[in-house]
């Protein structure tokens, strides 16, 4: 199963990923991305790729 990974050092809290894939990612109190669910179910793959493409600082990627 593909997984979503976040680089918290790159994240600047734009939040586009949370709009794109709210079941997979969120931001914490500091506004930095946190992965809620690493494994991406088939039904959420499009939204996960969307989240990756909508990050202005390329802080997310989908592996596998």
């Amino acid at each position: 199963m593909p997984v979503i990974r976040a680089d918290r050092t790159k994240c600047e809290g734009y939040g586009n990923c949370v709009i794109a894939a709210p079941e997979l990612v969120d931001v914490d109190h500091e506004g930095v991305v946190v992965v809620l669910q690493e494994q991406i179910p088939e039904s959420a793959l499009g939204r996960a790729e969307n989240a990756v493409r909508s990050c202005p600082v390329s802080a997310l990627r989908v592996d596998g």
Binding site: G13, Y14, G15, V18, I19, V27, H29, E30, G31
Partner: peptide
């Protein structure tokens, strides 16, 4: 204030 920004987008 990124957390407020996200809340406001919704």
């Amino acid at each position: 204030w990124p957390r407020a920004m996200l809340l406001l987008r919704k």
